[in-house]
Design a protein around this nucleic acid. Structure first.
Lengths: 148, 148
DNA sequence: TTCTGAAACAAGAACTACTCTCGTTTGATA
DNA sequence: TATCAAACGAGAGTAGTTCTTGTTTCAGAA
């Protein structure tokens, strides 16, 4: 099983033209074995069990390499700073992955009942939010695809 | 128009049992006049134009007071730290507003076409994310409503 | 109107999450 | 093995946020 993960990682690195280093392999293994949504600090703590000399900076850098290559994704598109929503009316948001602006979308009639049904019974729902991520009109002109 | 905003704010404060201070009024007015999704720093900059002696700490505290009272909302439920998604399969998330854990939801059949149609034509869509915010099962037992 | 206790304020130190720099080590290719 | 680019570790630096402390202001009572 460990072997499977290792060879899977090596193949992914070949595909993405990434160097296979011991640190990257250990970080990848840790990620795949953590079933929740870990923070860099939590990943660092776990990896240190196996690799006590790794630095937090290396974990951050490795995560960014993995994110850029598409090996993993991040949950929040804009974890950097608190952003306020003065507009009290119900609407959805578009997040620009380039300039990080947030654009209000026109209200749309999305049926979220199936989503609500997927929430476990003992969970209390406050509200549902629908978000679209991509590149806004202003940035679209100069956008260079990540595949290029 | 300024008068309308001011009296609206005073009524909101009475309802929520908040003291009406000059600083809070100026912050509220600034928020209602900013049509995008400002960061605390941007709000601070704007408020300083009218109230040069206000401190950034006061802006933060005032925003938290407004958020707790429901006068405004925040756009991102988890802007604090990067969170990694090792699970590559498509699924939705539940964010616990108390313990900040992220729970994967079972895939559900939500029709997002109306949402896609609300995105302006010159925007490029990367992906859509559906999120539910509330209180998870683990926290539900000890949960005390904000209204209590 | 003045007094009083509680709440809010300003200033800035402290903390957290993250990024950058630089000298050293390691990996990939010849 | 030798070479060079890439990756690494250590730690300083930065941005965003929270906390602490002493001062000021607000709201209700006298």
């Amino acid at each position: 099983m460990g072997q499977t993960l290792d060879s899977q990682f090596q193949q992914l690195c070949r595909e993405k033209q990434l160097a296979v280093t011991h640190q990257r392999l250990v970080v990848y293994r840790a990620l795949m074995q953590m079933c929740d949504h870990p923070s860099p600090e939590q990943i660092y703590e776990r990896v240190r069990g196996e690799l006590p000399s790794i630095s937090l900076g290396t974990v951050y850098k490795t995560l960014h390499v993995f994110l850029a290559a598409g090996l993993i994704r991040e949950v929040s598109p804009h974890h950097g700073s608190l952003r306020i929503e003065p507009n009290a009316e119900h609407h959805c948001h578009f997040f620009c992955l380039q300039c990080h602006t947030i654009t209000d979308l026109e209200p749309s009639e999305v049926d979220v009942v199936p989503l609500m049904n997927s929430v476990p019974e003992n969970f209390q729902v406050d509200r549902v939010s629908l978000e679209v991520r991509g590149v806004c009109g202003h940035c679209s002109g100069s956008f260079v695809s990540a595949d290029a």
